[in-house]
């Protein structure tokens, strides 16, 4: 598998072209190199051709694709965590990744912003095409990727700084030269937190409630104007009211951002997402895609028996 990665390596790098409307934000100097042009839409034949992509039920998107996954496998040393994940993630929609513990859904989420790079011995093979480039290419600048693909974690993790400083942090280190106050306000508004904190911007972020802290983390992610927001169990540490606020927010944010959410809460997946991907690991604990399609179909009439068993609670 290392040969595959070596073959993908490019000697030089160049910055990714800015996405629409994000010229205002500074950009890391090193970036991504385009891979060969690939069709953004693939027919079933392509899926069938790809080794490891066999057997999953996949819905063909008839809308814009944000991330195109082709035969993505992840290894931690000798252990294979994911095998041949192949599907397309639509642009400006909420896509939920569901599956039992250990099926690799968080591992998959971490592939999208190269978070697995932080784990020694982790190897990723296959292709995740984002803006015409393979995110798994070793030459890709993970700092640039993480600006364009932000992440919100399970436990709110604000910096021990003021509310303002938390939101301003990303734009500052990216060399933002515009109106920082306006950017902070806009980000807090989009995260549905402005009304609650506008008079206390200098207060410590740690003084906020858990739900407010999580929305602050979302504001912090938005402030660097990403295209994709990854959310790993974003509401599992929150009470029901704060959870519903986060869910509302996710639906609103999907008008502008592509959102990928890992959740154990099946009702939450049903409530917030437009598309759902179901992953399952076999006895060897390697996660594979079982079914990907519109959430409505997955929760009313899934095509694969294993999806039905899992969402109706008969798995295991």
């Amino acid at each position: 598998m290392r040969e595959v990665m070596a073959a993908n390596r490019e000697p030089d790098t160049e910055a990714m072209p800015p996405a629409e409307g994000e010229a205002a934000v500074g950009r890391a100097a090193a970036g991504l190199r385009p891979t060969a042009a690939r069709p953004q839409q693939a027919g079933n034949e392509l899926f069938d051709e790809i080794e490891g992509g066999r057997g999953a039920v996949r819905h063909q998107l008839d809308e814009e694709v944000a991330l195109q996954l082709r035969d993505v496998s992840v290894y931690y040393g000798e252990f294979q965590a994911l095998d041949g994940i192949t599907f397309d993630i639509p642009k400006r929609r909420v896509t939920a990744l569901i599956g039992p513990s250990g099926c690799g859904k968080s591992t998959l989420l971490r592939c999208f912003n190269r978070m697995n790079d932080l784990i020694p011995d982790a190897r990723m093979v296959g292709e995740i095409t984002f803006a015409g480039r393979n995110l798994l290419d070793p030459s890709i600048d993970s700092v640039d990727v993480r600006r364009r693909i932000g992440m919100v974690f399970q436990k709110p993790n604000p910096f021990p700084k003021s509310i303002f400083a938390n939101v301003a942090f990303g734009p500052r280190i990216n060399g933002f030269r515009g109106d920082l106050e306006a950017l902070v306000e806009e980000s807090l508004r989009r995260a549905a937190l402005w009304g609650e904190v506008k008079d206390d911007l200098n207060k410590s972020a740690l003084a906020l409630s858990g739900g407010q802290q999580q929305r602050l983390c979302i504001a912090r992610a938005i402030a660097v104007q990403p295209e994709i927001i990854l959310m790993d169990e974003p509401a599992s540490a929150l009470d029901p009211v704060a959870t519903l606020k986060i869910e509302d927010l996710m639906r609103e944010l999907a008008a502008e951002y592509t959102i990928l959410v890992v959740t154990h809460n099946m009702q939450q997946a049903a409530r917030v997402s437009s598309y759902t991907a179901f992953l399952l690991a076999g006895e060897e604990r390697t996660g594979r895609l079982v079914e990907f399609g519109p959430t409505q179909g997955i929760f009313t009439n899934p095509e694969d028996r294993r999806t039905e068993d899992y969402i109706t609670g008969r798995y295991g």
Binding site: M266, Q267, A270, F299, T300, N301, P302, T307, E308, I311, T312
Partner: peptide, 9 residues
């Protein structure tokens, strides 16, 4: 029990 899929149907 919030049934889904065939349980909901």
């Amino acid at each position: 029990q919030a049934p889904v899929a065939s349980d909901l149907r």
